[in-house]
Simulated scan of single mutants.
Amino acid sequence: MKKLVKWALNHLPRPLLQRIAGWVVPVLGLAYRGRGGVECPVCGSKYRKFLPYGYVRTRPNALCPHCLSLERHRLLWLYLARETDLLQKFPRTLHIAPEVCILRHLKPHFAGHPGQYITADLESPLADLHFDVQQIPLADNSVDVVLCNHLLEHVADDRRALRELHRILRPGGWGIVLSPVDRDYEHTYEDDTITDPDQRTRIFGQYDHRRIYGADYPDRLREAGFEVADIDYAASLTEAERTLYALPADHIYMVYKVG
């Protein structure tokens, strides 16, 4: 199973993966059905364990076969559900590179409020709008909430993208902007001269990554004008919850635009 998942991630185009994952992965997950192991907080499904996942280093117990949530998605969902009012209200929300498992909840939630939930991606067939996050075709101060996760490590000019996110967010608005962060790095490492996909995979961990964010990631968010809250949310949960939901030690990065 590990070899099959790794091969698919590294050889199939992402739009194709997005189209077929919804029916292929649940079929693979039939072998993992059972109770007493893990539970997905996003969809409520229970398994003996989750599927493995990873482009280079395959992580065991990572992918929910039912809703396709990964560790970071489950942590994000718990935060959104427990710590924000997004699921009680209907703020104008821009969801960039929408995670399928979370989109499946937010789209029905906003169904009675047309135009309040907008999904966007450069090429995903699941998104409403298609654009480069370095040049967002939305007006200044036009959205209340921005969700943009695990995208900036792919973008050529991430500082420009962050300035665009700040521009479109209204004063008083908030967002969650997550990226893979390696705190063993004091400073973000990037080298645009590395263009070979195999070399990028070896150095950055994935063929389409451009940088490894370090402990200075919150500072990069602040450079764009945001106020930032760096939240070690997993640490606030019980050990039993972290094990049951198979959660990562990732932080939640909340950004705010002050008027």
Rank of each mutant, 00 (worst) to 15 (best):
Y47S: 08
Q199N: 13
M254E: 09
L165Y: 10
L17P: 10
V228P: 04
A224E: 13
S142A: 06
Y217T: 08
I194K: 07
G205H: 00
C148K: 09
Q135D: 07
L16R: 14
H166E: 06
G37D: 08
A111S: 09
R211M: 07
V5Y: 10
R82D: 10
A235Y: 02
P137A: 05
P15K: 00
L30C: 03
N61A: 13
H209I: 04
N61F: 08
I212Y: 03
R222H: 07
R167K: 12
E39V: 07
I252N: 15
G44V: 03
E164P: 06
Y32W: 04
A235E: 13
R183I: 04
N10A: 13
H105Q: 13
K2S: 15
R72A: 15
Q88I: 01
H209K: 02
D191L: 10
V177A: 00
H187T: 15
V146P: 06
A246R: 10
E164M: 04
R35H: 06
L129T: 01
V155H: 14
Y213F: 10
V228L: 05
D157M: 06
F50T: 02
N10K: 15
H109P: 03
D157I: 10
D132I: 08
M1V: 05
E39G: 05
T188M: 13
D216S: 10
F204T: 11
A8T: 07
N61V: 09
D157V: 07
L106R: 01
L76H: 05
L87P: 07
D232R: 13
F204D: 04
I96E: 02
G29F: 07
H95F: 08
L4E: 07
D192L: 11
A156G: 00
P248T: 09
